[in-house]
Structure formats: structure tokens, C-alpha cells
């Protein structure tokens, strides 16, 4: 319990720092008054605007106000879209989250078993072939994989859509594409594209860890105890392999979520990545600042989840009350 509280404290600290960075971005990159009143405004008008917005207040007070509003979900109005930033993000968030989750499920669901299998069947030609394939997966740029998949499955075979999200169903403000057939079909290519690199990374890591563990003393002793092979491989070796793999999966999930921009661009996926590309092009500072906080929040939540998972797997972490942090 103390473990959880200390972790929560750290999480809040990280969020606070992220909030300050995005606040500074909002406050000091360009003059917000300029953006709002236009070229024709007089100096007096600007001063009045400044006062009305509270921009003359001490920095700390302004930051306090920013945090106070952020906690209530108020990140201001987007310059580009003229809508509340929070609303824009909320509309796009489910699309990116679903894409990232499905991509990571593919990556872990295949990566860990493949890594373990190639470790246990070291030297077999299938394992060698899989390893060679995984190298290609590591080396190929994501957008190229996406384009090739589109070419094969959308253009040549015509099986799957090449862009968009298909039909979505809205459940209490959360739009999901997982409940319609077109939604699921639309999700396949982008999630594979996003997941391939992660899959190969997780597979190679799981393989290396598994090989390492299989050489360790306690596995040798487990063999000397006459335990069955399955028990040794899956009961002892696999569990020990998962400890470092969980960390990487967590970190990579954060990355996948934050940097889905390329895949969303290739597939015109209506998620955060596409929104942020537009925001960057138009220097939409409120939107960017809010996005920064949101990403920091996601990373913090994932880290917290990894730490909890870590403690659940590894009694040494539980005892120490402090684990190796994932970040």
C-alpha cells in the first residue's frame, strides 16, 4: 500500500512538471494577445485584453490558474478550430487509444510467444527464419509498411479499406469502431502497421531474456530437481522473462500512443496524431499545450500500471517498496 502511495506521489509530480512546461509553452511562445485581437487593435485595446485575460498577473498565479482550469478539463479555445480544446481532444482520443491498444495487443500477443518459442527452439530453421524476418521488421520504416499493406490489401485485393475509421458507435460520448464490422476492418491495417515494429522489438527482447534465464543457476537447479520440461520452461523461465519484458511493453505502449502520428497520417485515421499534425502546421498553441499534458498523463498512468504489474510479478519489488522505475 505504501508502495502504491509513493508511486502515486511520483506520478502527480511528473504531471505537475508536464503542466508547467505546457503552460510555459502557452504563455511564452508568441503573444497570445496578438493571436486573438488581430493586427488592427490599438495598444490600449491590447492592454485591456491583457488585463481581462489576467496576463499581467504574476507568473505563479497564472500557472495556478492554468492548473486549476486544466484539472477541470478547461484548456482554452483552439486558434484553428475555434472549439474548446478539451472537446477536440475528447473527440479524437478514443480513435488513437483504440488503435494503440489493438496494436500493442497484436505486438505483445505475438511478440512474447514468438520470442519464447525462438529461444526454446534455438537453432531450428523456423526460429532462424523468424529472427531474420524480425530484423526486417525492425529495419523497415513504419510508413513504408503502411503503404505496402494498403497496396496489397486495399488496392490489389480490395479486402480492407485504405483510410478512415469505418462506422463508429458512440457509447456515452466514447466513439468506438470495435462494434461494427466496417470499424473492425478499418482498424486492421493501421494497427498492424503500428504494431509491427513493436512486435519485432518485443519478440527479440523476450528471446534474449528467455535465453539468459534458461542459462541461469536456478533453471539448472530446477533441472537437477527433475522438474518436467514444461514446468521449467513455462512455470519458471517464462515468469522470470516477463519481468523486464513488462517494462518495455509499458514504455512502448506510451510511445505507440504518442507517436501514432505517422500511421494516422498514412491511413487518414481521425485520431490525435492527425489533429496534432494540423495543430503544428497552424501553431495552435492551446491545442499543443493540452496535447502535451494529455500525453504526459498517459505516460504517467502507464508507468504506474507497469510498476503495479511489476510488484505483482516480482516479490523483490514488493518487499523493497520501490521498483526499478519504468521511466
Amino acid at each position: 500500500m505504501g508502495f502504491l502511495i509513493s508511486r502515486l506521489g511520483q506520478t502527480i509530480l511528473v504531471l505537475f512538471v508536464a503542466a508547467f512546461v505546457s503552460f510555459a509553452l502557452f504563455r511564452y511562445v508568441g503573444d497570445p494577445v496578438n493571436n486573438m485581437v488581430g493586427q488592427a487593435a490599438s495598444l490600449a485595446d491590447r492592454e485591456a485584453m491583457r488585463q481581462a485575460l489576467g496576463l499581467d498577473d504574476p507568473t505563479l498565479l497564472q500557472f495556478g490558474r492554468f492548473v486549476g482550469q486544466a484539472v477541470q478539463g478547461d484548456f482554452g479555445i483552439s486558434y484553428r478550430f475555434g472549439q474548446p480544446v478539451a472537446q477536440l481532444l475528447a473527440e479524437r482520443f478514443p480513435a488513437t487509444l483504440e488503435l494503440s491498444i489493438v496494436a500493442m495487443i497484436i505486438a505483445t500477443g505475438l511478440g512474447i510467444p514468438l520470442g519464447v518459442w525462438t529461444a526454446l527452439h534455438r537453432g531450428s530453421w523456423i526460429a532462424q527464419a523468424l529472427l531474420t524476418l524480425s530484423l526486417i521488421g525492425v529495419a523497415l520504416p513504419t510508413f513504408l509498411i503502411g503503404i505496402v499493406l494498403i497496396l496489397v490489401f486495399s488496392v490489389w485485393l480490395g479486402w480492407l479499406p485504405s483510410f478512415g475509421r469505418g462506422e463508429v458507435v458512440s457509447i456515452g460520448g466514447w466513439t468506438t469502431g470495435l462494434l461494427t464490422w466496417t470499424g473492425i476492418k478499418a482498424l486492421i491495417l493501421p494497427s498492424i502497421t503500428l504494431g509491427v515494429f513493436q512486435l519485432t522489438l518485443i519478440m527479440r527482447l523476450a528471446r534474449a531474456e528467455m535465453l539468459e534465464i534458461m542459462r541461469s543457476d536456478f533453471i539448472r537447479f530446477a533441472k537437477a530437481r527433475g522438474l518436467r520440461r514444461r514446468t521449467i520452461e513455462y512455470g519458471h523461465a517464462l515468469r522470470n522473462t516477463l519481468v523486464p519484458v513488462v517494462t518495455i511493453v509499458g514504455l512502448q505502449f506510451g510511445n505507440v500512443f504518442a507517436f501514432s502520428i505517422i500511421v494516422e497520417t498514412v491511413f487518414q485515421w481521425p485520431g490525435l496524431g492527425l489533429l496534432i499534425i494540423q495543430a503544428i502546421q497552424f501553431a495552435d498553441v492551446p491545442l499543443l499545450a493540452a496535447y502535451l499534458v494529455l500525453i504526459a498523463f498517459c505516460f504517467a498512468v502507464i508507468n504506474l500500471a507497469v510498476d503495479v504489474l511489476y510488484a505483482w510479478i516480482d516479490p523483490r519489488v514488493r518487499a523493497a517498496g520501490m521498483g526499478r522505475s519504468a521511466a
Binding site: S216, D217, F218, R220, F221, A222, K223, A224, R225, G226, L227, R228, R229, H236, R239, N240, V243, I313, D314, P315, R316
Partner: peptide
């Protein structure tokens, strides 16, 4: 041979710190 190991012929290795599965 596996069925014999641990049952009829057991072993004790050098390093007790690493002979046991840390997660069990």
C-alpha cells in the same frame, strides 16, 4: 533420466543465492 533426477539422485549446487527461483 528426468524422473530419476531429484527422486533418486539429487543435487546441491554452489551458490544458494542463485539456486532458487526468485519469483516463487
Amino acid at each position: 533420466m528426468r524422473a530419476l533426477r531429484g527422486r533418486e539422485i539429487a543435487a546441491v549446487f554452489q551458490d544458494p543465492l542463485t539456486s532458487l527461483d526468485p519469483l516463487m
